[in-house]
Design a protein around this nucleic acid. Structure first.
Length: 517
RNA sequence: GCCCCUAUAGUCUAGCGGUCCAGGACGUCACCCUUUCAAGGUGAAGAUCGCGGGUUCGAAUCCCGCUGGGGGUACCA
């Protein structure tokens, strides 16, 4: 068990180089859970030190994605805080990173390096030409050993330079990680290189910037993706060079693609966070699912509210091995969360989807809302994504029309919903038989005044007896005639909700369609 | 290639030396319920605990090697 003694401060520090995908949200979530569990602070910080890959709108998307699942922050770009600003490009303007880089140069832990990218290529080529193995090349600037005078001379000549970490030539550095059992991870300095801390532009690299900020912002626990494990030794070296206390490290496993081939990617996988609210996932379902990607409570409890997860979350129960993205499990969980909702809540949730599909107004009228309250229970437990609601309920709002051939692809966005008239014929029944069934059903219902589901059921079951049929074929034909589909909500509730006039009209149209075929 | 991390069913996981011929969940299959589809209920199949060596009276659990997987290898983060 990880001992937590003092107050904890953690951060999620994304780079606004694209929209936030679900893996990023999971890393943020673990930080947030840790902070909330121990009553500490969760900081949001924007690491926009990559001038080339900045994406407009990414920062807003990151905030929106985090808020959607229920993650809030105590300090951040939008709300400020005692260590503002929380955007690295703004902190760079303040000269913060330059100051610390200079300090390292002054103390001999870093040096100004005048090697250009082209020079470095040449160095690699020369290394190989000397018969050394290319993969063993580790960059070490000649400037490591320059005198202050040599450096001053090059600088006076106006040559651009980077500031690089002066990694010891031999020996090793090790650190421990609470997720990896607190074992010491040891790396030989010979496997490291003199990494750039400050670019020629004066912009810091991630390695310098995040570390200076974490120190200044008094971050106690660095909880980040496992892709940072290999660079952790550099960070240790930096903490030592500055003479600062080390934070506790926790590298959380990646979420792998569904096929297991690599980590989730924004381009190849449908995992951008905004896609999930667009499709009708509930934040709490996503929260629950994501918490279980790499963390477990006891191996059998899965359904938990955010509050329960906060109460139970400890970092040492986070898995060290990568989890795999499992959309089916998420879908199942979303269905469970949808089923827990009341009718009123489901109505409120599906209204935007129905409006967008043009089935109801935007905003919906009072009559539309009342009708939704009536029909929503018919599909409630069948919904796994709220976005499925329009396709399940459309025939309540639009007429249906039998057509000769099945419609391939997208359904028309207005007018009656077409369906293949062949589906009116139950299995092993001819068109003539189906026609007769529909005529009989129409006849019976046409005499029926009580349109309550129970009354309709009694009448139609009596008809089944009289025709010496089984319930399946008759009900199936009626279902298709009235809904335009073979899979629909319970028949009598549907007929009742559809109303007498519309039900009879659809039965008549369906019967007519089979008349001469 | 090199460096680092990792390894329980198709997938997510429980398991921290004996109570495990391995528990839960998703998915799959069957049955029940049933007008279709779901939901719900019951049950089943599916793991020689990646492989090989050790340590130990005893190992899924500890150690080593191999193999598989993942990550890193940038003046990206």
């Amino acid at each position: 068990m990880l001992e937590i003694t003092g107050p904890v401060r953690v951060r999620f520090a994304p780079s606004p180089t694209g929209y936030l995908h679900i893996g990023g949200v999971r890393t943020a979530l673990f930080n947030w859970l840790f902070a909330r569990h121990y009553g500490g602070q969760f900081i949001l910080r924007l690491e926009d030190t990559d001038e080339k890959r900045f994406v407009q709108g990414a920062a807003d998307d990151i905030s929106a994605s985090l808020r959607w699942v229920g993650i809030d922050w105590d300090e951040g770009p939008d709300i400020g805080g005692p260590h503002a600003p929380y955007v690295q490009s703004e902190r760079k303007e303040l000269g913060i990173y330059q100051r610390y880089a200079d300090q390292l140069v002054a103390s001999g832990h870093a040096y100004k390096c005048f090697v250009t990218p082209a020079d470095e290529e040449a160095l690699r080529a020369a290394w190989a030409a000397r018969g050394e193995r290319p993969e063993r090349f580790r960059f070490r600037g000649v400037e490591r050993d320059w005198t202050p005078e040599q450096t001053a001379e090059a600088e006076a000549a106006g040559k651009p330079f980077t500031i690089r970490l002066k990694v010891p030539l031999d020996g090793n550095t090790s650190f421990s990680d609470v997720i990896r059992g607190g074992d010491q991870i040891m790396v030989n300095h010979a496997d490291l290189y003199d990494m750039v801390l400050l670019k020629t532009s004066g912009m810091p690299t991630y390695h310098l910037a995040h570390l200076v900020d974490d120190h200044l912002m008094q971050v106690t626990h660095v909880i980040r993706g496992e892709e940072w494990v290999p660079s952790a030794p550099y960070h240790i070296l930096l903490y030592q060079a500055f003479g600062w206390d080390l934070p506790t490290f926790a590298h959380v496993p990646n979420i792998l693609r569904q096929d297991g081939k690599g980590k989730l990617s924004k381009r190849k996988d449908d995992v951008l966070t905004n896609r999930f609210w667009e499709r009708g996932y509930l934040p709490d379902a996503m929260f629950n699912y994501l918490a279980l990607q790499g963390w477990s409570y006891d191996g059998s409890t899965e359904l938990m509210t955010p509050a329960e997860i906060v109460a139970r979350f400890t970092i040492d129960r986070v898995q060290a091995s990568p989890a795999r993205w499992n959309p089916e499990k998420l879908l199942d969980m979303n269905g469970i969360y949808i089923r827990k909702l009341s009718t009123a809540q489901v109505v409120a949730q599906i209204v935007p989807f129905l409006s967008r599909a043009g089935l109801i107004g935007d905003p919906p009228s009072a009559a539309e809302l009342a009708y939704l309250h009536q029909i929503t229970p018919l599909v409630h437990e069948r919904l796994e994504e709220l976005g499925q609601a329009p396709a399940m309920l459309d025939f309540f709002f639009r007429d249906v029309q039998p057509v000769a051939e099945a419609v391939a692809g997208e359904l028309p966005t207005s007018g009656p919903l077409p369906y293949a008239k062949a589906t009116l014929m139950p299995k092993k029944f001819t068109a003539a038989q189906a026609h007769a069934m529909l005529r009989s059903a129409h006849g019976v219902l046409n005499r029926q005044q009580d349109w309550a589901p129970e009354a309709l059921e009694a009448e139609l079951r009596a008809l089944v007896e009289r025709l010496e049929l089984k319930v399946g074929p008759l009900f199936s034909a009626i279902r298709v005639a009235v809904t335009g589909r073979t899979v629909a909500p319970p028949l009598f509730d549907t007929l009742s909700a559809l109303g007498r006039e519309r039900s009879l009209a659809r039965l008549a149209v369906a019967a007519a369609a089979l008349e001469n075929s």
